[in-house]
Design a protein around this nucleic acid. Structure first.
Lengths: 127, 127
DNA sequence: GTATATGCAAAGGCTTTGCAGTGAG
DNA sequence: CTCACTGCAAAGCCTTTGCATATAC
């Protein structure tokens, strides 16, 4: 496992990035620093980071993958209109012992996503 | 909006189906009853059902779409090893007022998914 | 009878793969 | 020097679209 300029740029881009970028967004934005970078490298890198547990892949209904570099416990709010995905603080405790068909399920992490309208979209008139 | 044999079969297949089928699974299984059905019809139908609010599309990290016909409040448990997605009963109340960057977010529904290992996979030896 | 739905095939995204060339250790 | 990584292009999924035919109402 080598540290290369491309991998460093992708990591730098992900760390502290609150927008949960898609692979395409990573590609587009990292291209500014690494003009010759290819999509294959982006995909190789994010797949590796997911496998290593350094970032998480988010469930997504928009046909592309979104990545979450912030592994501290927090929830998400997805605006169903504009598609933006916001980080929000967790409230309360999360169950770590849940039952599936009467048998214990070993929870690794809990994903809570609120689907709805953000302030901007709720205020617009074409709902 | 017409009731056609194809749409009826797709609905019959979805209703009471606990496996959260993908579009491809719907296509494959409904083909038994409607051998000439096309993928286009399956996609047209599920997209229409989602638009009408009769079924829900689930966030999914596996590159294909999964559909949820059961709109009663419940949570999910996703086995990260075998990929099966189980329905589980909701426990406790869900927040309906959350804040995004200090502003209220209008929650339509809350998606809680526990990621982890099901009993079967937790018990197998190749973890 | 007419507008809508179907089925087929082609096209369009997103992602992965194969492979030769490159570069880090 | 060697093996892993890169970049390109091609191929692979999944999904959507265009269009002629079929069919529900």
């Amino acid at each position: 496992m080598r540290i290369t300029a491309q991998r460093l740029e992708i990591l730098k881009y992900l760390i502290g990035n609150p927008i949960h970028p898609t692979a395409e967004e990573i590609y587009r934005d990292v291209k500014g620093e690494q003009p010759n970078i290819s999509r294959a490298t982006v995909y190789n890198t994010v797949n590796m980071l997911v496998r290593l547990g350094e970032i998480r892949e988010l469930g997504c209904t928009s046909g592309c993958r979104r990545f979450e570099p912030d592994l501290t416990p927090h929830d998400h709010a997805l605006c169903v209109k504009c598609g933006r995905l916001f980080d929000i603080e967790s409230e309360g405790e999360k169950d770590t012992r849940v039952m599936v068909m009467g048998k214990p399920f070993e929870v690794k992490y809990t994903d809570i996503t609120y689907h709805g309208l953000c302030q901007t979209c709720a205020g617009s008139d074409d709902n």
